[in-house]
Amino acid sequence: MITDFFADYVAVLVAAILGFALVGTALIANHILSPHQESRAKALSYECGMLPIGRSRTQVHVRYYLFAILFLIFDVEAVFLFPWAVTFLGVGEAAFYEMVLFIIVLGFGLLYAWKKGVLNWR
């Protein structure tokens, strides 16, 4: 059993290395095959043909961060749901109602965000 587990994640490791090699090969092939002609205009960042105005690494609107926070809550919940989904029948009714309670508690969080207008991109 433990050897199976080992073999499974050996495959994952090999896949990670092969994936990097795959992208690396393509980039190296491109480097060999393509022409290189440095020029100042080519190294400017694109802004519809004009010279770029100001810095580009500016702040983004706070709305994006609010969604990131909401995502964090529900993604962690999803992580809890995975082990629960395959085992709750063995524990019985109590496990089901505990998860319903958990979902309802987080549901109130969603309702609060909804009422505050976060979900409407305001």
């Binding site: 980039l27 092939a29 491109n30 095959l33 393509s34 022409p35 400017l44 960042s45």
Partner: peptide, 10 residues
């Protein structure tokens, strides 16, 4: 594959 690979200097 044969296109120049550009990177903005900034």
């Amino acid at each position: 594959l044969t296109k120049e690979d550009l990177r903005p200097s900034s």
